[in-house]
Structures are given as structure tokens and as C-alpha cells.
């Protein structure tokens, strides 16, 4: 049995790498068809990353993005969980706010960037707020749903044991909803990163996003390709780690 499972796992991994290889081939063909100046080939993209890597200003941009993401992620998590739990506990609050939040989730938040600029000015806080703005709604929605869908019997057991409000949250609510909430965090933090980068594209002079916009302005497509590729790798790495944790949590819950 184990050998069969190992075999399947190995095959799945091999399939995944074959797919990645196929994507690189498609990219290369697109580059040949459209022209190397606009669709930069995979090899040249990697080479350009090497060039950027040696550029002294690059790490400043890289650090700025990571720092803004760290701030935005912390604020998003605290705000999203707080809102989600407090809105999820009450049925009336849930029914009232859920459709409104759904509508908010489908709003193009890029258009809110002038508002953010007017309130926060160009710079670090604007991109942090932009990240929070993107991530907080999905996390709130997932948390609300998780709290709402908690089996009613848990609440009854808590009442039976006369748990205090604090104990009820710490020992019943959080362990019960953690796997669900984590799925929300995975999605929410991914869009938070997206929001930070978007914020940098328009409301900042530092970070990978502003580097991207600068390169677009100079029609430097090699740097555009290199930075976009790095952003994709960064986002995929973040998402993969979260997905792995997510699976483990859900597995533990069963």
C-alpha cells in the first residue's frame, strides 16, 4: 500500500514539473512569435533577475515590499479575525452584514486609491492601508462563516460547563473554527500581498511595485518581466506554504 501511495505521490510531483516545463515552453514560443523585446524569453528574464540582484537599489525595494507586507498582514489578521468573530457570533449581525461584505468584496479596490492618497499621502502608510483594504474583507467573511457554521452542540457543552466568555472564546470557539479561519487567512494574505504591490505601483516610490511601474515608464520590458516573475514566485511561495499549513490543520481536525 505504502509503495503504491509513494508511487502515486511521485507521479503527481512528476506531472507537476512536466506542467511547469510545458508552461515555460509556451512562454518561449510566445516570445518567438511576438518578439523578444515585448515578451521577454524565460532565459533572459532569469538573466535580468541576476542583473537586478547585483543592483544596489534592488534590495531596498525588496525590503520595502516585505516590510509593508508584514505590517499590512498583521493589521489584516487582527482586524479581520476581530470583525469576523464579533459579527459571526450574533445571528442578526451576520445576516445584516454578510451581503454587504459580499458586495464590498466585489468592488474594484484599485479605484479607491485616490481616496487612500488623499487620507494617507504617498508613501509607506498608503500601501499598507491598500494591502489591508484588499485582505480584510475575505478574512472577515471566512471567519464569520466559520463561527456561524460551528455545530450548535459546542455552544451547549460550553454552557453546560459554565465557561466564562473568555474561556468560551479560547477553548471552544478558536479551536473549533481554526481550520476554516486558516483557509480565509490563506486567501486573505495572498490578496494582501497583491494589495501592497498594487499600492506600490501607484502610491509609493519604493518597493517592487514601484520598480515595476518605473520599468513600464521606461519601456524596459526586461525589468518588467523580471519583476513580474519575481512577484509571481513570491506570491506562489507564500500561497504554497499557507496551503501546506492549511491541509495539515484540516487533517488534524478530522
Amino acid at each position: 500500500m505504502t509503495s503504491l501511495r509513494q508511487h502515486l505521490q511521485r507521479r503527481r510531483l512528476a506531472d507537476f514539473f512536466i506542467l511547469l516545463l510545458a508552461l515555460v515552453v509556451v512562454w518561449q514560443i510566445a516570445s518567438w512569435l511576438v518578439g523578444d523585446e515585448i515578451v521577454v524569453s524565460p532565459a533572459e528574464t532569469i538573466a535580468q533577475i541576476g542583473v537586478l540582484y547585483r543592483r544596489p537599489t534592488f534590495w531596498g525595494h525588496f525590503d520595502a515590499t516585505l516590510l509593508a507586507f508584514a505590517y499590512a498582514a498583521s493589521i489584516t489578521i487582527v482586524l479581520g479575525l476581530g470583525l469576523g468573530i464579533s459579527l459571526g457570533i450574533s445571528r442578526a449581525a451576520y445576516d445584516t452584514c454578510e451581503p454587504l461584505l459580499m458586495a464590498l468584496a466585489s468592488l474594484p479596490k484599485v479605484t479607491l486609491y485616490p481616496v487612500i492618497l488623499m487620507f494617507f499621502g504617498v508613501g509607506f502608510s498608503a500601501k499598507v492601508v491598500f494591502g489591508v483594504l484588499h485582505g480584510v474583507v475575505p478574512i472577515t467573511l471566512f471567519t464569520m462563516n466559520a463561527v456561524r457554521n460551528m455545530p450548535a452542540i459546542y455552544a451547549r457543552v460550553a454552557r453546560l460547563h459554565r465557561l466564562s466568555a473568555r474561556d468560551r472564546v479560547l477553548h471552544m470557539l478558536i479551536p473549533a473554527v481554526l481550520p476554516e479561519i486558516f483557509s480565509g487567512l490563506r486567501l486573505g494574505l495572498s490578496v494582501t500581498l497583491l494589495g501592497v504591490v498594487l499600492g506600490e505601483m501607484f502610491a509609493s516610490t519604493r518597493g517592487l511595485g514601484s520598480m515595476l511601474m518605473g520599468a513600464i515608464g521606461l519601456a524596459d520590458f526586461r525589468t518588467v518581466a523580471a519583476v513580474t516573475f519575481m512577484l509571481i514566485v513570491l506570491a506562489t511561495l507564500l500561497s504554497s506554504v499557507m496551503l501546506w499549513l492549511d491541509r495539515r490543520l484540516h487533517h488534524g481536525a478530522k
Partner: peptide, 13 residues
């Protein structure tokens, strides 16, 4: 992990 990819980054290109 698709949703974490900044699609808007492709738009200018």
C-alpha cells in the same frame, strides 16, 4: 495560488 498573482501587472505589457 492563482489569486495571489498580480494580474494587473500584465496589463501595461
Amino acid at each position: 495560488s492563482y489569486y495571489s498573482i498580480p494580474i494587473f501587472a500584465f496589463y501595461p505589457a
